[in-house]
Design a protein around this nucleic acid. Structure first.
Lengths: 227, 227
DNA sequence: GGGGCTATATTTGTATATCAGTGTATGTGA
DNA sequence: TCACATACACTGATATACAAATATAGCCCC
């Protein structure tokens, strides 16, 4: 019912957002307003609206008189964004350690167990999905809906690039171990530890990061133009 | 020259944003597209565009078939936002303590001195303005442009409510003392202290906060409708 | 007198047409 | 062969017209 009530512009926005986040449209790819309008049986007006909202989200960029493209964030900005993401996640963890309720803690444990199962099965895709749930539990448990919303939004924005993270060998297993520390810290109410553990978890600190950077560099290569 | 190139929609957006931030349009106030269009000699299309951008910024909300209104954030959400703002400011301070350059530190000191002068003169408005510059120096000094941009955006969103802060007696003087601690911490490169000091500075911790809340409550009263 | 239904008016959402500016491509001349 | 100028096409910006949906008010019936 709610879906029918969403305007065409909203639907188009959601669709494009999903496409970009899930890698069906790659950074640097051009978005043709006319083609999209035809594909969705709408005029250019709602397409424009959708574009504007995506620009505000930072997922696409419009170069005046040149066209609209899927945002391609440079390595430097990407690092900056991960730095902020780590801080937000850490803050969520800190607050969650203090504010989490019993049902929320139970949900967090369930999410962790599902991650474990996926890791044991070696299923990267499932792990990726369950990992989302795990982190979302922490956002919710922070009991700061604004913070949770900001964290989710930034995560969305990073999603096209995060996907590459887990492809790094052993990353999934390490990630799981970190999750364990996080869960226990939150369960014990150790705010400082939860914050630090989550922050580190996001930063992919140390040697992994350079691997990640090189992955992104490889991903950026096809599109070409710097900016 | 750059101003003439801005589209009408951008100009209108900037104007509305400024009006909202500076309290010329109060939370809950309705924005009539037709009236604005007439006032700016534009049609509804650019007005709509401006609206959408402001919605993305969180400064206004549009209720379908009901109207477009200046966003009215509830007390609970306001507290949440300040909690996040404090964290972001703290992060800026932490990074600034490690990364600030000599010219940036000099600029920060100048900004602090101007705050001091305004405080001595008892000029709240000037202090308010110089305070902006002071914090902006720290954002820049964090050398994380994404973080700086997010911090600025959130600050904009809180501005209609921050304005009330300094009206609390003695707040300006206390604020100045806190600034001193912050400057010294950054100058010494004490990241942890800078982070803590800035975080506390934003949170208006302790007894001041309840005063602030009551001020906001008074501000919310005229508009009426909850939600 | 009160409640429900209907009609109207208001408001957002969408479509289409037009305008202006810019980037690009092509052709011509040196 | 290269450079410059002109023309064309593409894109973004805006105006206007239209459609859909809802809130409100008024009226009628109970």
């Amino acid at each position: 019912m709610a879906s029918t009530k969403r305007s065409n512009a909203q639907q188009l926005r959601d669709c494009l957002e999903d496409d970009i986040i899930n890698g069906r449209r790659l950074p640097g790819e051009r978005l043709d307003p006319d083609a999209l309008g035809r594909a969705f049986n709408v005029s250019r007006t709602p397409v424009r609206e959708a574009f504007q909202q995506l620009v505000a989200s930072g997922l696409i960029t419009v170069s005046p008189k040149k066209g609209t493209f899927v945002a391609k964030v440079g390595i430097d900005q990407l690092i900056e964004m991960f730095e902020v993401m780590a801080e937000l996640e850490g803050m969520c963890g800190r607050l969650a350690a203090r504010r989490i309720s019993e049902p929320e803690l139970a949900a967090l444990r369930v999410a962790h167990e599902r991650c474990e199962a996926a890791a044991l099965a070696g299923d990267t895709d499932v792990y990726y999905y369950e990992n989302e749930t795990f982190h979302d539990c922490i956002y919710t448990a922070s009991h700061n809906t604004f913070l949770a919303s900001e964290a989710r939004q930034l995560k969305q924005r990073l999603k096209p690039y995060r996907r590459l993270q887990l492809q790094v060998r052993q990353r999934m297993h390490n990630s799981l171990n970190e999750h364990h520390v996080i869960v226990e810290a939150i369960a014990k109410g150790d705010a400082a530890l939860a914050q630090q553990a989550l922050c580190d978890h996001v930063l992919i600190q140390g040697e992994r990061f350079s691997d990640f950077v090189s992955s992104v560099r490889r991903m950026e290569a096809p599109a070409g133009q710097a900016g």
